[in-house]
Design a protein around this nucleic acid. Sequence first.
DNA 1: CGAAACCTTGACAATGTTCAATCACTGTGG
DNA 2: CCACAGTGATTGAACATTGTCAAGGTTTCG
Lengths: 236, 236
Amino acid sequence: MQTDFFKNNTLFSPALETSFQQLAHMAHWQCYKKGAMILDHRQSEHTFLYIVRGWIKLFKESADGQEIIVNLLTHDQYCGEEFLSYPSKQETYQAQSISDLDVLTFPIRALRSLIASDPQLAFSFLQSTLQKQQELNERIEHLSIQNAIQRIGCYLLRSCDDPKNPKTSTKLPYHKVLLASFLGMKPETFSRALKEMSKQYGLHVQGDVIHIPDVKKLVGFVCQHCSKVFPCQPSE
Amino acid sequence: MQTDFFKNNTLFSPALETSFQQLAHMAHWQCYKKGAMILDHRQSEHTFLYIVRGWIKLFKESADGQEIIVNLLTHDQYCGEEFLSYPSKQETYQAQSISDLDVLTFPIRALRSLIASDPQLAFSFLQSTLQKQQELNERIEHLSIQNAIQRIGCYLLRSCDDPKNPKTSTKLPYHKVLLASFLGMKPETFSRALKEMSKQYGLHVQGDVIHIPDVKKLVGFVCQHCSKVFPCQPSE
DNA sequence: CGAAACCTTGACAATGTTCAATCACTGTGG
DNA sequence: CCACAGTGATTGAACATTGTCAAGGTTTCG
């Protein structure tokens, strides 16, 4: 494994010069096909996973056997950082690829000691974690106060190709079932909400490609209960 | 300000010996009455706030003027850590005391440079942030899959006096309106849910004191969709 | 004491879920 | 290449949950 990858990466590049060799040494590059199990509960506890290409699904099972989607992650996102804290009372999960996938895996213990010895790397992880925390706070806000249509609309607006254009479009990166679950609703609700949005806001849905002909109109409904207004600047 | 406080504190105690003086120097001890405004948007961006005694409410306003509860925090919890990242794209908020209150305030810039220079303190903040992240993940899980009764039940079970006892009780630390909003529901829904829980699970509600006569029975309903079972160990 | 905030309740509307049926799409083996 | 199984997506109807609005009771605090 080359050190170049780490030197050109937002998360790792602030590290001390001496740390790059160690990172390159502990990381393992792995490739998977779509649908492969990447981590089980036991493995997740010992693995920091950095995604280079593709998508993964993090999930758990509820007491009554339902699958709970924890997160959906893509390139330059990662998971397992929670196990850097020690002793860890964090929850484990399972990871599965939902597309062809390239990842880097790091043994958590080795990464933990490196971070503890490299203040610059520690600070970079802290910054990145705070950023992630912000995203979680947004998800909580949305689940608390937005209805299904608003949550979907918010997702579409944030993932659209050209936010500045008055009309734009976007392509869902994975199945609607997954997205529905990630947004905290049932697939049927998701389907009906999309249909309703077509009627109300002229959305054009063709498979996984969605065209938004009037961004402003959609924003007017989607962002009304939120603390921010698209393109998601604080509303005050 | 004495250094003793920091040396006996989970978050700060791992710091380098030389950092304690600086912490003591930059921190300001402040006391407020119930209902005081602690931080406005502008101030929140520059302040790390550590609560010594009492409760605060963090909140924002939505585009349509509703109050959004971001968090409710009490002693040994803190806010403002998100502004340690720099340049910060984090969202600001307002803070108000909801009880008599003692806090420590830190100017964020000074704290940021101290953390950047003290690897042990940086690592401690990273650990603490990861812990907080875990809690946010739990809130998301609960908002996604639990109904109103389950969310309330989960809150009551986690805050009850004696989790091991088959019967126990708890006292709400603040108004029901706040708790309802924190749990993502309307006050009316909260009120009706408590009533329903009295009927179904024998809860006895007297003002802000709630008695749970049969913990096991309540757990059977509350924890069924969750990935953990009371006292909140992973269910697998 | 009286005002204001908090809390509860009822009637009703809006939203979301469940269950079952159907259709569309994809990949596999004959 | 086609038949077919399996998954994903949509739809309808019945139902459950939550929100809204209005009214009235209760508590708190100056």
